[in-house]
Design a protein around this nucleic acid. Sequence first.
RNA 1: GCGGUCGUGGCGGAAUGGCAGACGCGCCAGACUUAGAAUCUGGUAUCUUCGAUGUGGGGGUUCAAGUCCCUUCGACCGCACCA
Length: 801
Amino acid sequence: MAKQYDFKTIEKKWQDLWYSTKAFEPVEDKSKKKYYSLIEFPYPSGSGLHVGHIRAFSSMEVISRKKRLEGYNVLFPIGYDAFGLPTENYAMQTKRHPREVTDENIKKFEQQLKAVGYSFAWDRTVDTTDPKFFKWTQWIFVEMFKRGLAYKSRTLINFCPQCKVVLANEESQNGVCDRCDSQVIQKEKDVWFLRIRNYAERLLQGLSSVDYSERIRTEQQNWIGKSQGAEIVFNIAEEADLKKNYPLTVFTTRPDTIYGVTFLVVSPEHPMLDFFAKGIKNQKEVKAYQDTAKTKKEIDRIHLSKDKTGIKLSGLVAKNPISGTEIPVFIADYVMMGYGSGAIMAVPGHDQRDWDFAKAFNLPIIEVIAGGDIEKEAFACKDSNATLVNSPLINGLNVNDAVNKMISVLEERGLGKAKTDYKMKDWAFNRQRYWGEPIPIVNCAKCGQVPLPLSELPLELPVLKDFSPTSDASSPLSKCTDWLKATCPKCGGKATRETDTMPQWAGSSWYFLRYMSPEDSNYAVNPKAYDYWANVDWYNGGMEHVTRHLIYSRFWNMFLYDIGAVDDSEPYKRRTYQGLILGADGEKMAKSRGNTVNPDDVIKAYGADTLRVFILFIGDYEKPAPWSPEGIKGSERFIKRVWNLQDMICDNCDTSDLNLDALIKKVSEDYESVKFNTAIAHLMTAVNTVYGRGKITTKELNTILILLNPIAPHITSEIYESVNKKDILNAKYPSWDESKVLSDTIELPVQVLGKLKGKVVVPLNADEKLVLEEIFKQDILKGATIKKAVYVKNRIINLIV
RNA sequence: GCGGUCGUGGCGGAAUGGCAGACGCGCCAGACUUAGAAUCUGGUAUCUUCGAUGUGGGGGUUCAAGUCCCUUCGACCGCACCA
């Protein structure tokens, strides 16, 4: 009789053994197949791990342990994305250094993660705030700079006048400061950008060569936002002096509607306004409008109102390049400088925004596509079969043909060309904060912006007593006058350092490469190590990172590919995601709601194995699921039942009620397709079956233990050891015989006119004749005659009578 | 507005177009207990039985629809005056 199930002792025993013997530290070995499974490394916050992390990490944990049992050499690394605002803010409040706080948090995370029994490669732990790591983050930035992919540009940043602090976008939702709720204002500043737009097409094309969940793929596509259309040049001139003219380029996806253009609109920030500074008669009005637009920006533009505002530029006149009609020019804030060319040709008949504007300003509306009622609303016809009207060159053509014809006309006459644009903006690569990687550039009076050579990297953060943000929206690093002074690497003259730091997304854009050779001091990623480990076979993470981190890291990897640092342009072969764990009340877990669940408490009460089973059993892995304090009891009972199996061993018992081949197949396929809840359900059914008979063979027991081991490693290790006197880590993952998955006899459902009327027992693969004989024997038809029978072998038979 | 996901018992959720509700929670009954906890066994969609009805509503395709198509209502997520 085995002892009482004592999870505390058992879990401690195995964790101590695993971590002291370095059981999960992989070594490059060309004779073994490798497998690289990756989780999104956590941000080591002061509040520690929460159950959401457990769900996020457990999928790859299961896959990693399974792959090891299958004989793979598995790299399943862990690290910390440790630069960031919460740590910095907490450090400021408590008057400590972020370094100290970070180290403390990391320690806590490590201890918590080990208490769950995760099989991470601890020796390879990376920390983005470690100079040995960010040396290479800085190096990548420098390489990008050298190739013109990093540039400085004047832009608007979010600034809270109350806190006197520059805010990240995520801190200023809806134009309100996260901390003090006051209105955020926009300040102009020169900051760094990365030219991710240069990679837009490749980021889009690359999606077809990787295995990402459909939802991830479409979200990335939308984020990149490719749209095809044309650039058309409209000539604008001063009424008073027609020779003073400006070729205004507009971007449109609908060049076919050009005859419907009744006015032009440019963004309030458009450079043509400076060009015509003198020619615009109502300059004062225009200036005032520009000023309001600036303050309005984030706040009002978010709530897109139907009330269009704008100003007609008097003194200017434009011409439709195709029809020759004269049309007025407006500025309006519904046109964004950041997309297309910052100017549009307005077609009020067929674009609702233009229609609204035309109505507000009493402008003509021309129908050029038949079929709508443009008196009531714009007819935004997307049906490519609709017909063009009132358009001399393209009358009668359908939309598709009209688009093509118009583009060729424009190209012939040199008035425009086909053009593809992307919604994705360049990546604002800057923070005016202390706790981030310093940007490794110096400004030299003679040479301009000069990057630091590798020999001067890492450029470490100065030790600052006061690293609070400055009130003038510049980085706290600018207060450190000693640190600012530098010598220009090019000419040896005096220079000053850049003071902005990198955003939080920097380190996470390439950390997965560093795991391959975390200690290497000559390479960001050692080519030999890369050769063996690349690429990431399976990456799991949150949906919230799909449009930022996942795009950014693909971009960095593509860049590293371009400079020959890595051999593949796509870093992740497969990507899946997990749903959120909600509070028991069905709301998002938040300290302020008091509905958070700490994994430590769960482990104390139920043990790590029960927690691991429950977090994967709780529901569809991809969907959000509320934590259930009652539900975990089911997982606890299951684990206890597994424990009791070791007292039921009997090697000569009847096992016909449990098909091991079917069990292995179902569980294994479910693991591989992220269906952990049903995998556990199959194992529960199997355990219930043997429990019912009170007997289990050693083979059955070992199979169940190995299948369950990736999910509940401690208890399965313990039982396996006591039964087999061996460590389950050296066991072989079972395979199944496809021919034995279906049993010899089938209980076949019999339908009459699509309704279930009975069942017959027939041998596997029985033919229709045999099935019908069996049906007559049982008199399921009650004398009716069969007109037609639809028989699906081993599935069902449906009789039409 | 655009794009996406999804509506199934009291609850979490299962169902390659082929027996709807696997598995679990909860609940009910019984067993073991002085009693409770734990454990074990059985039951648990709806309707008054017979056998009929059931996967948000309406229509369609099919021998067969939770699953496919159209339409409608609702929820959630992402993006958003994106030209």
